[in-house]
Design a protein around this nucleic acid. Structure first.
Lengths: 99, 99
DNA sequence: ATCTCATTTAGCGACTTCGCTAATTAGCTG
DNA sequence: CAGCTAATTAGCGAAGTCGCTAAATGAGAT
């Protein structure tokens, strides 16, 4: 683990990313559609303007919750469930640890 | 469950509350010290000015993550683990549901 | 009633977030 | 290359967050 500050920063990034309803919904949408979708496909499912969704996607990407891959003209966003473990890990630890 | 909007609002409140490092730390501190502490006891463990911590406590309270009880001069904050289930529930559901 | 102690509320300034529209980048096709 | 399409970046304004200090509240003790 090392680098406690890096770990805290990661927690900050992940929890902040999850703090917005639209971003949680993006993750859910991705999951329900098999784990990966084109950016426009995602944007099309939201009432927000496309650039707004683009920015949400960037926040999720910076938190490590999704990854992007260029696929010709489109960009494929993929759910990265591994980094969600940061949250479950924190929750589990909070519940189990003894003082 | 009913009221989908109420449920979404609760998710918003809880995830937003967890999005700040100091607030996560307050929950951890509470847990490690047995689940309840006086406000001043909590504030004393943070570098922030006392009113700043008071506000964080209010955010946590509004999210249902802690409760307060007047105890003479002091106010006793108690961890409310039940409402943390909102998060674990969301996480679990996200991981297990099939599209 | 007054004083003190624990805590909150009020209010300010710096900064960030989140929505938008307009402009730009970059790949593909003719 | 010109033109279309997918998506991002730029930049703006409204609103929220988070730190602070100063003032107010409210309970207990003198």
């Amino acid at each position: 683990m090392a680098e406690p500050e890096a770990r805290l920063a990661e927690l900050d990034a992940v929890f902040s990313a999850l703090a917005h309803r639209a971003r949680r919904q993006i993750l859910m949408t991705l999951h329900f559609r098999g784990g990966s979708m084109a950016a426009g496909d995602i944007a099309g499912r939201f009432a927000h303007a496309w650039p707004t969704t683009t920015r949400h996607l960037k926040v999720l990407e910076e938190a490590g919750l999704v990854t992007v891959e260029r696929k010709g003209l489109t960009r494929l966003y993929r759910l990265e469930p591994k980094n969600l473990e940061v949250v479950t890990g924190w929750m589990k630890w909070l519940k189990s640890a003894k003082g």
